[in-house]
Computed example of a mutant assay.
Amino acid sequence: MNTPAPWTHVDPLGEALHFLRMTGMFYCRSEFSAPWGLALPPMPDCMMLHVVASGRAWLELDGEVPRALSAGDLAIVPRGTGHRLTSQPGVASAGLFDLPRELMSERYEVLRHGGGGEPAQMICAAVRFSHPAAQRLAALLPAALCVDSRQSPHAQWIDQTLRFMAAEARTLQPGGETMVTRLADILVILAIREWIERDPAARIGWVGALQDKQIGRAMARIHREPERDWTLNALADEAAMSRSAFAARFTRLVGESAMQYVARWRMQIALGWLQEERVPLAEAASRLGYQSEAAFSRAFKRFNGVTPGAARRTSTSERTG
């Protein structure tokens, strides 16, 4: 077996967090006055982010205990589940798209709503991930993540980032949308870090496997080089383990065999190439080592449930719909 050099540092979980680069679907600066309630519809494949710039709010999800939010707090709904933001639990909520909104740019709006009482200001965003590592991580997060910036070990970072984001949202200078998106990247990573540090659920399954010193090393190599002709022996060598021990441990931690994971990862990468980067089918097949488009298409449909052409058409209709 090839033992990795002792000076080589591998941070598989850190690499997964690196892929949390978001594409903004829409941003909204909300100016509320009590009593107020805002109902956000389900947005599949999106993560919803709420920052309380001033005042107070409550986050309500069906089946979950309402969560109080104060100025400086951050709330994330990772899987785009429909939810409500209110001045008090149980307040009647108007639908997001039923309220008048001032369009500041193609994807940036200002919303004003409420009964004239205690004010609250929030920055809300719906963002999408294209990289499969980011999508898989988001799928494993709880229904909602709430970060109290005053109690967080990253309090100073969060406070400064929130202030910067609020300032950008108020003025929306040239490049403001890009600034807000990159600042949202930072906030999401900080929130996920806190979840990993405090929640036992973050130490099992895919996230737990990434944190395993040996299995995580092999997973990182798969993520970096999906086109490589991986074998079980080669992956075991990366982990500095015997073939049988590696195979058993990988399956136990990840929930599927190493070679199944390789195949699934390749097809998730291919889906992103076809939908986000508009890579031609022949090129995607070649880049992943397939000898023919037909073989690639069969594998793609087996893992993604649709043909490559159908996946691309679905993406195009979503962009133009």
Rank of each mutant, 00 (worst) to 15 (best):
M122C: 13
G272Y: 09
V262S: 06
L111A: 05
R101M: 15
F129M: 13
T231Y: 08
S149R: 05
A39G: 00
I269Q: 08
A209S: 10
R182P: 01
P6S: 15
G90T: 02
P4M: 06
E238D: 12
L38N: 00
E194M: 07
S257Q: 11
P280M: 07
R298K: 08
T307D: 06
R228P: 06
E293F: 05
D73I: 07
M48N: 04
M104L: 14
P308V: 01
A68Q: 06
A209T: 05
G63R: 06
T181F: 02
R128D: 10
L103C: 10
P4D: 08
R298I: 11
I204W: 12
A220R: 14
G116C: 12
C46I: 01
L140D: 12
G24K: 07
P12Q: 11
E168C: 08
S152F: 03
P66K: 03
P119A: 06
A134T: 07
H154N: 12
L140R: 08
M165H: 00
L274Y: 05
A34L: 07
A75D: 11
S152K: 03
A94T: 07
E177D: 10
S93M: 03
C146P: 03
E318C: 08
T23Q: 11
Q268W: 03
A248T: 12
G305I: 09
P44Q: 12
N233I: 13
R249A: 14
D98A: 04
E238K: 06
M165L: 13
H154K: 12
R198T: 15
E277P: 10
W58G: 06
R170Y: 05
S317G: 01
Q260S: 11
A239H: 04
Q160E: 15
A138R: 09
E177L: 07
G115P: 09
G255R: 11
I196D: 09
S33C: 06
L187M: 14
V180R: 06
S315M: 11
